[in-house]
Design a protein around this nucleic acid. Structure first.
Lengths: 350, 350
DNA sequence: TTGTATGCGTTATCAT
DNA sequence: ATGATAACGCATACAA
C-alpha cells in the first residue's frame, strides 16, 4: 500500500541510500544517469518520504510550537498570523495551541509540543504565574517569550514598549486639552497591562494631572469587558471624564459601543486612545486612534530569536523591545484625521 | 544529555519493554512493585518519551493538519479556533497552514502535512480551483472539506446552508418593506459566495423584486473591499438602494464605515443584513443583523467526520449541511432589537 | 511476570 | 560513484 524508499531503490536498481542522495541533493553526489532512473522511479511509484522517520533520524522536525493565551482575542490572532508567516518563510510549520486563558491547558500544550519534538517553542504566556517555565528550561529546546514579559534571565523575549507607548498615547490625549482622563486597564496580573497603566500614570503625573482610583477599571481583555467598564465609568450621573485611555483595541471597541448606547459623543464628549493596532481598529465607529504594534516585526524577531538559538545553543538569549507608533484616526479628536483609505494603507489590513 | 527509555530501564533494573508497559498502561500488565521502581526512575531522570519515535512505530501522530484560506479573515480565524477546540477535546493537536489566498501555498501546506504524517487533514479550500485535491485523494489519509463545497463524490464535507440562509436574510429585508435592495457579494469563484448570491436572488424573485446587475458587486472578502463596494453603490448621486444584503460580516463592517462617511443612516436610510456571525458583528455601529453560523458545531462535525473515517476507513464520507440562524440586531431596523447584552449572550463571544 | 529481538523508514558512515 | 549496514527511540510479538 504505502511505498517506501526501498521500493524506489529496488525499482531503480540502486541502493536505498542513493535514493536519499538524489532526493536531498546530498551529502554525496550521484551519477546523472542513475539520478534519472531514481527520479523516474519516484515519479512512477509516487513516492513521498516519511517525514516522521526522517525527523527521527536527523533529530529535527522543522516544526515550531506556538502557544497563545486566547485565540478569540484578535490581537493574539494577528500575532499568531505574523508568527506563522515568519515561520513559513523560514521553512517551518507551526503547531498551535490555544490556552483559552487556562494555565493547565497552556502547560498541557507546552508538554505535548516538547514531546512531539518541536524544534522550538513560541510562548505568549497566559495571565498569572507561568507554570510551564521550568518544564521549558529543562527541555533544553530553544524557546522565546512574546508580548508578555517574564522576569527571568537567560530567556529570549520579544516585547513592545508598552510603557512608552501608553505614555505617548496619554500625552496625545493631554495635548488635546483633556484633563479628566479615565483609564480602562487590563487585568492586573499580566505584564503589558501593568506597563501600560504605568505609562498612562506617568504621562499624567508628568502633566500634573491626577488619576483618581475611581477613574480606573482593571478588567479582562475582550470587547464585553470594555463595554461594561465604560458603561460603569460613563453611565453614572456624576461628572463624566472627557478622555479615556484604553489598554487594548478590543476593550475600546466595547467602550465605543457603550458610548453609542449612552449617547456619549466621541471624540467630542470623550476622546479615546487605545493600544494594539488590530485591523479592526480602522473600522470601528469612529475609527480608533491607537498605539499600533509592529506585528510583522514581532513575528520576524520571534522566530528569528528562535532560529538564532537553534543555530548556536550558546548564543546569548536576546530580548527585543520594539517601538509602537501612534496611528491617528478619529477617536482622539484631531483636526484632520487622515482619510480612511490612508489609515488602511498604514499596515492595518493586508 | 537526552534521556532515553533504556536509561530508565537500566536505572529501574528492568528491560526497556517494561518501561513502555507501565507508561502506556499496556498492552501487558506489570507487577505493582516493578511499576513503582519504573515510575520512580522516570521521575528521577525526568524521562519524556520521544513522540516522534513513538509515532514512527505506531504509525499515528495524533496530529491534524488544518489549511485555511486567509488567517486575517476573522471568519476563518473563528472557524480555526472552533476546530482547534474540537481537536483538543479529542486529544489531537493541530498543525495550521495559512494559504493567504494563494493556491500554491495551499498545496505546499497540504503536501508538508501529508509528509509529516498527520492523521487527517481539515481543508477550507481557497478560492479558485483546488489543485491539491488529487494529492489528498492519493494520500489515502482521511480528509474533510469545510465551508467551501467541492464538487466531488466520496469526500466528507461540513457546510452551512448558504443559500437558505441568504434567502432568509433577504426575506427579512423584504419584510421590512424594503424593495430597492442591493447586494455586496463575495468573489465569483467560491462556493459560499455563489450560493449566498443565489439565495438572495431567489428570495427577491419570489417576492417579485428585481435585482439589477447595477446593484450587485462581486468583491473579495475583507473590510476594505466591502467599504469600496458600498462607496461605489451609495456614493453616486443616483437613487440609493434602501437595503443591502452583504455576503460576509467583514464586508458589512466596511460598508458601515462607508455609510458613516457618506452620511447614510443605517438602518433608516438603508437596512443591512449580512452573513457569518463573527464576534465583531455584535460590536459594529450599528450592531449587525446577520445570519449566524454555528461555529461550535462546524468544529465538532469537522473533526468528527475525520475521526469517523480514521476509525473506519470504509465508512461513507458524510456531508453535513448545518443551518444558520438570523441574529437580529440593529442594522435591519427591527422595532425592538434585543438589548446589547443579550446579543452577547447569543453565543457571540466566549 | 519479565527479558529479547525485530521492525518502523530514514540518514549517514563505512567499505568497496 | 555506489552498496551494505548501523543507528535514531520506541512498541510489541515471542520466548523464557
Amino acid at each position: 500500500m504505502v511505498v517506501r524508499r526501498r521500493d524506489v531503490a529496488e525499482l531503480a536498481g540502486v541502493s536505498p541510500a542513493v535514493v536519499s542522495y538524489v532526493l536531498n541533493g546530498g551529502p554525496r553526489g550521484v551519477a546523472p544517469e542513475t539520478k534519472e532512473r531514481v527520479l523516474a522511479a519516484v515519479q512512477q511509484l509516487n513516492y513521498r518520504p516519511n517525514g516522521i522517520a526522517r525527523s527521527l533520524r536527523i533529530n529535527r522536525t522543522m516544526t515550531l510550537g506556538l502557544v497563545i493565551p486566547d485565540a478569540s482575542n484578535p490581537f493574539f490572532a494577528e500575532l499568531a498570523r505574523a508568527l506563522e508567516e515568519a515561520a513559513f518563510a523560514a521553512g517551518y510549520t507551526v503547531l498551535v495551541g490555544n490556552a483559552t486563558d487556562n494555565e493547565e491547558r497552556q502547560t498541557a500544550y507546552v508538554r505535548t509540543f516538547l514531546q512531539r519534538q518541536v524544534d522550538g517553542v513560541l510562548l505568549v504566556p497566559a495571565h498569572g504565574p507561568v507554570a510551564c517555565l521550568p518544564e521549558l528550561q529543562a527541555s533544553k529546546k530553544p524557546w522565546v517569550v512574546l508580548d508578555r514579559r517574564v522576569d527571568l534571565d537567560d530567556v529570549a523575549q520579544v516585547l513592545v514598549d508598552n510603557r512608552g507607548g501608553a505614555a505617548e498615547g496619554t500625552r496625545h490625549l493631554l495635548a488635546h486639552g483633556r484633563r479628566r482622563i479615565a483609564c480602562v486597564a487590563g487585568p492586573r496580573d499580566v505584564m503589558p497591562s501593568q506597563d501600560r497603566t504605568a505609562g498612562c500614570r506617568a504621562a499624567l503625573a508628568e502633566a500634573g494631572v491626577r488619576l483618581p482610583a475611581s477613574l480606573v477599571r482593571h478588567v479582562p481583555f475582550g470587547r464585553r469587558a470594555g463595554y461594561l467598564a465604560a458603561m460603569d465609568l460613563f453611565g453614572a450621573t456624576r461628572r463624566r471624564p472627557d478622555a479615556l485611555f484604553v489598554a487594548s483595541d478590543e476593550q475600546a471597541v466595547g467602550a465605543l459601543r457603550a458610548f453609542a448606547e449612552l449617547g456619549v459623543a466621541c471624540p467630542d464628549d470623550v476622546a479615546v486612545v487605545s493600544f494594539d493596532g488590530i485591523a479592526d481598529a480602522a473600522y470601528s465607529f469612529p475609527p480608533l486612534t491607537t498605539m499600533t504594534q509592529p506585528f510583522g516585526r514581532l513575528g520576524q524577531e520571534g522566530v528569528g530569536h528562535l532560529l538564532a538559538r537553534m543555530a548556536d545553543q550558546a548564543a546569548e538569549p536576546e530580548v527585543s523591545v520594539l517601538p509602537v507608533s501612534l496611528a491617528v484616526r478619529e477617536t482622539c479628536g484631531c483636526e484632520n484625521p487622515p482619510a480612511h483609505t490612508s489609515a488602511d494603507a498604514n499596515g492595518q489590513e493586508r
